[in-house]
Design a protein around this nucleic acid. Structure first.
Lengths: 236, 236
DNA sequence: TACTATAATTGTACCGGTACAATTAATAAA
DNA sequence: TTTATTAATTGTACCGGTACAATTATAGTA
């Protein structure tokens, strides 16, 4: 683990342990430098990371402050999107409906940047938070990158497996979201009625080298899905 | 304008002018350094900015590459949230329904971190993209921070006014989103039926010093609102 | 007391450098 | 030709430093 990541983790831990709230001040830069015995730029980088994650904000001439959103029941949009964070003490489980190797249709192939003759893993799940239906998910993994999957792996976190067992690292993702109505099949999975509202998110996950390796379509249960997104300034 | 912001802008311009696509390679770091006659760290900072915005991705040992999502009709979620970006050539207009000074109710006061006796500007608009109804927006501005607003300002970009005329800078924001059904009033504004699906986003905008200054509730027309969110790696 | 000018605090921009890890290209071996 | 080894390329981590801008605290003045 890199120094600045380590320090970021420790600072976050410090915030949690001391139960700091929105606006509370952290030790000044120079103290953090000596405390962790690293250079200024390393501390700065750690704080930058925390700033992006929405944990702190920095104010020149004043100090470093804790940033906290205080609305219970809202998950980070990214936490349900492969990135583990801010799920708190909620438990995420899955019913696996299908794990199989198939050929992608035209749309899937295009989103993954592969040919329709290439193999993909098809994974279909219903996901739960604390026992309540969260969403129905259908995703496609490029078999050339993810050569093996089974129901056990898929029941847990696929991303953890991919990163640790296969040694590939996830780089970035593009999420496309829209609101619509459920069809009968989807309604069945989610325990809702057809034509009920829903949030649909399609996501293309890329490796660090820019290659897409996972295309997923998620249909959310509109009553059990509330998301928070923390944005940083006009540069987003 | 800061150097690294300037360089970021120029690099982005370069990408657009040369119509570079996903995966196309940019000049290497060292060349960018000499080309813009700045140090390595400045170029790095510019690229970091572009990476966060989803414009490029960097691959150690390999180079700097263009990152592009290629799905027309999707707006950046942040572009409709005060941050001007990625709206492309779409035209954003507004019907102003109300601009007035009032007292906040309990909820609004709490979200803005003020007292119910403090003054707020109440702004209500219906917003359009290329003439089509996008959303209904109701927002509250802390009058102590935004002392004056009128229909003209509000018809245009409030954020531009606040930043340029008042000299305050927007720092960060927390967005809370959920899916639900329209009530009769909202449906009227959006030209839809009651009980139609909708995306609701509440946002609290903070200044750089962490003080909330705008709390807004937006109700989106589900057929005209498709959003893209670009995420960067597991650190989000 | 209230306001103003001044000084101390504190994070950010920017520079330049070394070491290194990941990728890719070049070379040698099978 | 293919594969393994080596070397060149290229971005990232980390160091340390100077100058500066924004904030906050202090001292001075009316």
């Amino acid at each position: 683990m890199l120094k600045y990541q380590q320090i970021a983790a420790e600072i976050e831990q410090y915030i949690n342990q001391h139960d700091l709230k929105q606006g509370d001040k952290l030790p000044v830069l120079e103290q953090l430098m000596s405390q962790y015995a690293v250079s200024k730029s390393t501390v700065t980088k750690a704080l930058e990371l925390l700033e992006r994650r929405g944990v702190v904000f920095q104010l020149r001439g004043s100090g470093i402050f804790v940033r906290r959103h205080n609305r219970p029941g809202y998950m980070s949009l990214f936490s349900t999107q492969g990135f583990k964070s801010n799920l708190g003490d909620r438990v995420l489980t899955s019913d696996v409906l299908d794990v199989s190797v198939t050929k992608p249709d035209e749309t899937v192939a295009q989103n993954l940047g592969i040919d329709v003759t290439d193999d993909v893993y098809h994974v279909e799940r219903v996901r739960f938070v604390d026992g309540e239906v969260l969403c129905h998910e259908e995703s496609y993994y490029v078999k050339q990158i993810v050569p093996y999957l089974n129901r056990e792996i898929v029941a847990d976190s696929i991303f953890d497996y991919v990163q640790s067992a296969l040694g590939v690292t996830i780089g970035f993702s593009d999420m496309y979201m829209q609101v619509g109505r459920l069809n009968a099949t989807e309604a069945g999975y989610l325990g809702l009625q057809a034509d009920d509202p829903t949030l649909r998110i399609e996501t293309i996950f890329h490796l660090t080298n820019g290659k897409p390796f996972d295309y997923s379509r998620i249909t959310y249960h509109y009553e059990h899905s509330q998301f928070v997104v923390q944005a940083n300034g006009p540069y987003m």
